[in-house]
Amino acid sequence: MIVSDERPVGKRVMLMGTCLCDAFYDEAAKATVEVLEYLGVTVEFPENQTCCGQPAFNSGDWNASRKVARHTADVFAGDLPVIVPSGSCAAMNFHGNLLQFEEAPEEKINSLARRTWEVMDFIRHGLGVKTWPGTFAEPTRIAFHRSCHSRGSNSGEAILELLGSIGNAEIVPFGQGEQCCGFGGTFSVTFPHISGRMGTLKMDHILDAKPDILTSGDMSCLMHLTGLARAQGRPVRHCHAIEILRDTLPVKS
């Protein structure tokens, strides 16, 4: 995974809301806007955005995924940072796209790759926020699922540092943290048994740690994990890490 060393930083950004937040997890997208605005950042939301194209890319249909990637690159044209509340969609922009255009690179695709930040990475390393000025009302145990698409990027460490700095927060470790949750997009459909087993194992480890909240930088992992857990009769409170940042901020008077 290659994250550009020259990613732009600024107080005006474009938000890539992700299809999953568009369809299910509006709270994560709202929290992204609210947290960025709290930090003095102006957030633009290009209306014509859809999806990063990852489902087609991972399926091997690169003709289809290149079409979607070109659309996305057009929608986010310009020189503003592109902020994504998902390690997975961000990695599609700065890694997957380069792979599927490696034989015939396109400048707009490269430009999108250079400008893309996963939101927690942006807050920690782009804006330089080291500690989060938030507090939980009660001591709160947080299980942080480090999504695989943040491997090789700075997002995992950024999330740990920011969440760990919240008052009353305790990050609780759990077994085999390096193992994938088993979602993998279309993988969870074409490999339902293995995907389900991987997710169940992951939930076993997570629940052993008795967290109050399960969080991640990727709602896709949480959709799969909590979908399994609910069906197994062991629901767990969960949200995107950016929601924790928002929800622990002091209430404005």
């Binding site: 809301g17 937040c21 568009d22 369809a23 299910f24 997890y25 509006d26 997208a29 709202k30 806007v33 939301f45 209306e47 339902p192 389900g196 959709m223 799969h224 909590t226 979908g227 399994l228 609910r230 069906a231």
Partner: peptide, 16 residues
Amino acid sequence: QRTLPESHGGDFRKWL
């Protein structure tokens, strides 16, 4: 094996 979360399709855009 899983339940699907409730659809909030378009809610974020409307909120924004």
